[in-house]
Simulated assay, not measured.
Amino acid sequence: MDKIVKRYYQLKQQQKETEQELKELRDQIITFCEEQGTSEFAAGPYRVKLVSQSRKEYDDTKLYEALPDLELWRMLSKSDPAKIAGLVKLGVIKEGRIQDTFALKEITLLQVDRK
């Protein structure tokens, strides 16, 4: 069991290091794109593409005020954008009722594919 735990620990450390390196490389690629004024480019056999998205970040207090029905609030338990989107899609919540309960956050996704 000692070997298993040791290997698990080693892999978790590798994972942390890999995630940190991925973040640094991602930041460098995004900076390059910003400096070049582009959202797509080719690098050898790879195609790089930046995709902008807007994500809703809900304010729990405002959302609770907009959805005073306790039964409905229990279904959410906290503001989960996926659950809220599902309830809107099903017609349980009207989009207009919650329009002032979130802020849009722009994020950039990085896609790297082989050509």
Score class of each variant (00 low, 15 high):
Q10H: 11
L72R: 08
Q13T: 09
E106W: 03
Q111W: 00
K89E: 15
I98Q: 06
K16G: 00
A66V: 09
A42P: 00
F41H: 08
Q14V: 07
E65T: 01
I93S: 04
R114M: 08
S79R: 02
I4S: 12
K94Y: 02
K78Y: 15
D2S: 11
R114L: 14
S52M: 10
G96W: 03
E35N: 12
P45K: 15
I93K: 04
V92K: 09
Q53V: 06
T18P: 00
Y58E: 06
E17L: 07
G37M: 04
G91K: 08
Q10Y: 03
Y8L: 11
L63K: 05
K6R: 14
A103Y: 00
K62C: 05
E106D: 14
L109D: 07
K62M: 12
R7A: 09
L110V: 06
I30N: 00
K94V: 05
P45E: 15
Q111D: 06
K6E: 15
I107L: 08
A82F: 04
S77F: 04
Y8C: 12
T38S: 08
T18I: 07
W73V: 01
L67R: 03
K78P: 00
T108E: 15
I84L: 05
L87C: 13
Y64F: 13
R55W: 06
D100C: 04
M1P: 03
R47H: 11
K105G: 01
L70H: 07
S79D: 06
G96K: 06
Y58A: 04
Q10K: 10
D80Q: 14
Q15T: 11
G96Q: 10
E19L: 12
L90C: 04
V88Q: 14
E71Y: 04
I30R: 02
Y9I: 09
L76E: 05
L109N: 14
K89R: 12
E65H: 10
R7N: 10
R26N: 14
D60R: 01
K83I: 11
E24K: 12
D2Y: 03
